Structures are given as C-alpha cells and as structure tokens.
Simulated scan of single mutants.
Amino acid sequence: MTESVLKTAMLADAALAKGPQLLTPSALAKSAAAAPNSGTPTLTIVHPKAGTSFSIDPTPAMPVIKCQAQIVGIAPDPTPTTAFNWLIEIIEPQKRGSCASAGVFCGYQEPGHGLLGGTWTPSLVAFRGGEARIRVTTTVGGVRLEAETRVMITGTNPPHADIVKMCGGNATDIARIACHESGMQQFAGGFPLLGGGGDTGIMQLCNPAATCDERWNWRANVERGVSVFNQKKAAARQYLDTHKIDGKWPNDMGLSNDQVLQREAITQYNGGSFWKWDEGKAKWIANPPPQEYFKKVMAASCP
C-alpha cells in the first residue's frame, strides 16, 4: 500500500470512529470542492442574545424581534440553504390574589415552520409580555440540531395625556378614578401594575377579570375601565331610583341629583355603595366608610 493510500485509509477510519457527519445535499451541490466537515455541527442563535430586553412601546405596539440562527462546525456553511423550525413562547409570571384578574394566565406561542436561511421574525399578533423563549431546530446530515435563547418583553407606560384623552378629559370621573387607582400607570418595572388582590393596570381591573390584552395593552385596559364605569353608573341610577321623590333623590347632604349619582357611581366602581336609604328620615344617608373612596378619587392629582 502506498503512503498516500495509507493516509487516506487512516483518515477514513478516524471519520467512521466519530460517526457519520454528512453535509446536506444542497450544501454539497453549492461547492464541488466541499471538504468533509471537520467536526460536529452545532446550531446557535446569533440574534437575539440571551437576556436582551424588548419593549412594548407606548402606542402600544409589540416589538420587532428579528431571529437569526447559524450552523457552525462544517464547511461550506449550509445555513443559507437549510430549513429551520422556529418557536417563540411568551410566559407572564403569575401573582396570586383575591381578584378574578389574579387567576388569568397569559401565554403566547407562535411557530415558524420550514423557513430557509436561518432567519425569522415572529408576527407577535397579540399583546403579551414576560419571558420569551425562542427555540430553533433543524436537521443536518441526519443529525437533529437545536438551540434556545431567552429574552424579556416588557411594557412601557404611555403619557398621561394619552390616557386622559381616552377618558374624555381631566375633569371626567373616569380620569379621576384612573389617577387614584394607579397614578395612570399600566406597568411597574415593565410588568402589569398589580394591586394587592391582583387588580390590574391603569384602571385596576379586578372583577370581572382583566383579559391578557387588558394586562399588556393599556388602551384595552382603559377602554374596559370606561365600560365598567358606565355599567356602574347605570346600576347606581337604578339603585337610587328605588327611592325617588318628586323626581329627586332626597339626601342628608342636600346635594343635587347629579352630585348624588356621581358619588354612587364612583363608589360602585370600587365595589361599594355611597348611599343607604333611611326609612325613618325618608332620605339617602351617606355611608361613612365608602365616602372615603369618593374623597380620595376627587382629591387625586396626576400631572
């Protein structure tokens, strides 16, 4: 056996000892001079880097997360002609509490199947935040490769002026409630602002539970708060109408109908009732504890 033939045989034995390490047919076709790979192929996620933080902007709009994977360890690089399967999963940390909102689990999954070239930008069609786990898999020469990275998606508070506009103006009852409940903040540290019971966001939605969009989309949160307040106002009117004399709601504070309704509607938003009927006096009497919530709402100031 000649020296060159002997060397070739020894190299072949060494390659077999490592197991089959084959290039994809497409990669082989790309270069007639392609040499057998020199090592075990691995897959890595080049972008985004682990620990990167992305933000839902104040518009609000979900961030654009451009993902890029790379096959390393073999030549020529088969990445451009290889198909990849992607998956992004977003999971929000949970916090227990007495509100129905505390029982809401917000997750999101989006796959990207059979995508050539190692790049992918998920559409992120729903408002979600928390830890985002990005996984990618592919097969090279019969070997399954996979990689994973974890990043964060957090929320950004909007300007107060945008919230006030959705509430109909600074002087509206719903704007005052938003100010008192949260200081007009949807997020704290990038995550939905939660009250002690799990009340959520700008309007501190509790019962019924805040949806996932209402946790991560501040506009949805305010819109729901306005709707809840309007429902409470209608319920307050119905409640007060149970004792109405000559078109008025008689009360121990000498207030007009509008003032009586305002106090009841705001207090009902918090789950209480400002007024209780006194049969002996034939008047609506102010409830001492619920009065405090109304006073705090009216005193709230958000520049």
Rank of each mutant, 00 (worst) to 15 (best):
F54A: 04
K95F: 08
G107I: 01
V46R: 03
P25K: 07
A69G: 05
E89V: 14
A102G: 10
I74K: 00
A75Q: 15
M62A: 12
G118M: 02
V72W: 00
I71M: 03
D57Q: 03
H113G: 00
K49R: 14
I74T: 14
T42A: 12
T44D: 09
Q94M: 11
V125M: 06
A75I: 02
S55L: 14
S26G: 04
D77V: 07
S31Y: 04
L116Y: 10
I88W: 00
I56W: 11
P60H: 10
W120K: 03
P122G: 02
S55R: 15
A132V: 07
P41V: 09
N85I: 02
C106W: 08
P36A: 00
I90M: 04
E89G: 09
P122A: 00
V104Q: 12
A126P: 00
A75S: 15
F84P: 02
I56G: 04
G51T: 09
F54E: 01
A83M: 07
D77P: 12
A33H: 07
I45T: 07
P80T: 07
A35K: 14
G107H: 10
P122H: 01
I56R: 09
V46T: 15
C106K: 05
E89Q: 14
G97I: 05
G51M: 13
V104M: 14
K66A: 15
I90T: 08
A27K: 06
P60D: 07
E89L: 04
G112A: 09
N37C: 13
S101P: 02
A102N: 10
P60K: 11
G73K: 03
T42P: 01
I74L: 13
S101Q: 04
C99M: 06
T81H: 07
P58D: 13
S55W: 12
V125K: 13
A102R: 07
H47Y: 06
I88F: 00
P122S: 01
R133S: 08
K30M: 11
C67V: 04
